[in-house]
């Protein structure tokens, strides 16, 4: 295996592990928000932001924790046949079917990027161009000019009206990391087929 592939696997897995291990503690944030919700409801005026905040935390929890959960091997497979195969056969099959998984994640990522562009006020059909343009402006003209390129910032249709671009950005990031993790899985499987455990 080329050195850069090994380095890629190490780097991506370390990154995803790091992010996943931070995400894992969000369970306490979730408990905290919901407890505050019950306390404020019982003793004071209930808070307007708790339910929606809890929902945002939950999304961050599962989407940023997703790649780490892949590393832990916790995503179930139907192992009617799979369970009986040798490690090598499994690696062959996975190396092939992981492209289906990556296709799904790709479509998910496209939707996420497009929706995030929308949340920043871009209504066209080329979300990647939009972000590319933003990046160029940011690099050449600085943050002030970039801010001016943004349009109507999408808000949640609730009375609290939080902006939606932060959670959508988290979703983009999580799905992208998931894709990178799957690529690492593919490399590992190719290694297994060649008889090396990477």
């Amino acid at each position: 295996m080329p050195r850069f592939i090994l380095r890629y696997i190490r780097a991506i897995e370390a990154l995803n592990r790091f992010i996943g291990r931070i995400a894992m503690y969000l369970i306490f944030v979730l408990v905290g928000v919901l407890l505050w919700s019950s306390i404020s409801k019982t003793f004071f005026v209930p808070s307007m932001w708790t339910l929606e905040t809890a929902q945002f935390v939950m999304v961050a929890y599962y989407v940023l924790g997703g790649p780490y959960s892949i590393q832990m091997g916790s995503n179930v497979r139907m192992d009617l046949f799979y369970g009986g195969w040798s490690l090598k056969t499994k690696a062959w099959m996975d190396a092939f079917t992981v492209f289906f998984l990556m296709f799904y994640l790709g479509v998910l990522l496209y939707g996420a990027v497009s929706s995030t562009a929308y949340s920043l006020g871009y209504f066209g059909m080329e979300p990647f161009d939009f972000f590319w343009g933003l990046l160029k402006t940011l690099l050449t003209e600085g943050p002030g000019a970039t801010g001016e390129k943004l349009g109507y910032l999408e808000r949640s249709s609730t009375a609290w009206r939080p902006h939606l671009w932060p959670i959508k950005t988290i979703l983009c990031t999580g799905v992208l990391l998931m894709l990178l993790q799957c690529l690492a899985e593919l490399f590992r499987d190719i290694g297994r087929i060649r008889g090396v455990e990477l």
């Binding site: 079917t97 992981v98 998984l101 799904y104 479509v107 998910l108």
Partner: peptide, 18 residues
């Protein structure tokens, strides 16, 4: 897709996305 033993969410998601 499920029979291939790929992760369940990938199998379902792929068919839906396609």
């Amino acid at each position: 897709m499920l029979m291939t033993g790929q992760r369940v969410f990938g199998a379902i998601g792929f068919v839906g996305a396609l």
